[in-house]
Design a protein around this nucleic acid. Structure first.
Lengths: 210, 210
DNA sequence: GCAGAGCGGAACGATCCGTTCCACTGTTAA
DNA sequence: TTAACAGTGGAACGGATCGTTCCGCTCTGC
């Protein structure tokens, strides 16, 4: 999950390169627990001054946008990897686990509305929806009757909300939670699912900022 | 869920009595979607001026405290009612449904840390934990092996995170979500649950305010 | 040895928010 | 009828917060 360290450089330039990653990691941690945290909190967490931040990003919004777009790209990567796996149900399960552990849902959805997206992000979001649908439809035979793709969004939403004192513990507990949820998704107790299923349109209201 | 309307009174005193409920309802709606919303947002939502608020509560913290304590009391009521039901599994399920629909978890946990609790609240919280445990233990035979009481907290946490454009829709979708989750809780697929189970101690870190 | 990339953090200005304050209105009790 | 006042709306204030800018310093790479 942390940004891979750049090739070890020494001296001033090396420090700068290392700061690139440190700032992004710090921003992820900070903004994931509070999307409207002050930018100074990110600097402090990264162990750098505020200037180091403003040297890289013109403003807060750009940092948020970069973070979110990163998350979206990771999501696409995971989805493509999952579609390449042979077993549809196992692929979906693994996908959910990886997305939940890396907090990719929060990274993309909770941060939305804090910046104006680029056209590229819109395109990537569309593609993400397509891949999710493909992944879901492929696994449908193993899933409870009546479920729809957008139910996955809600599942991810719920998992993202689970937060523990430390990141490591959060990871463990979320995997436990996914296990219970996935069991619920793949078991058909005979009764129909209640209520009209969620719809993509009514899920996109988060993108409007406050 | 809304505060029951007081006996219809007319004139100034009636208006005041009705405002009591309107303010509490507005505060619930506003603070549930954003625990650190400005107090002016509550007034606006309730359709009253700011004075109407400060006439009733000495400050923001008192309003939050009242709201939270109300939620805690409702939680106790629901738990006691559930313990009075004969079928343990159905009781647990109904309890979860009612708590989730009334958003009692968010009302008690998400708001914690925004005020200093009273001794009475501490006592009620202890009792809530006792009742939850009783409810859970009674239903244990119907539940997946390895689950612990505190897993319920995580389930409630996840459900509370599900939010839709309108309260009515939120309610519907959450019930759908509970159905899936409860199926997961009551189905034993044979594999053991991963990770160390959650513990009450590591769940109480939220009470420390930020 | 020097130009400047990179940085830390104080300072600034804008915004937000909790709380106070005051003028006003309708009601109630004499 | 009227005098007091409970109840209210909302402007105004002061403090806190936060994004951004700016300046002086350090150390590096040439």
């Amino acid at each position: 999950m942390p940004t891979p360290p750049p090739p070890a450089l020494s001296g001033r330039r090396g420090q700068a390169a290392r700061n690139d990653g440190a700032i992004l990691d710090a921003a992820r941690e900070v903004f994931l627990t509070d999307p409207k945290a002050p930018i100074a909190a990110v600097a402090e967490r990264a162990g750098v001054g505020i200037s180091a931040l403003y040297r890289r990003y013109p403003g807060k919004e750009d940092l948020l946008r970069t973070l979110c777009h990163d998350g979206l790209r990771r999501y696409l990567t995971e989805a493509e990897a999952a579609l390449a796996e042979p077993d549809p149900a196992a692929a979906l399960r693994g996908f959910l686990e990886r997305v939940v552990v890396a907090d990719l849902h929060a990274l993309t959805v909770n941060l939305a509305g804090t910046f104006t997206p680029t056209p590229q992000m819109d395109a990537d979001a569309v593609r993400a929806a397509e891949l999710s649908t493909a992944l879901f439809e492929r696994a449908r035979p193993a899933l409870r009757e009546g479920l729809v793709v957008d139910d996955l969004t809600l599942v991810l939403e719920g998992c993202s909300a689970v937060r523990m004192p430390t990141p490591a513990r959060t990871r463990e507990i979320r995997l436990r939670y996914v296990e219970v949820l996935f069991t619920g998704l793949t078991t058909d107790p005979g009764r129909p699912l209640p209520g009209p299923p969620p719809d993509a349109r009514e899920l996109s209201w988060r993108w409007l900022d406050t």
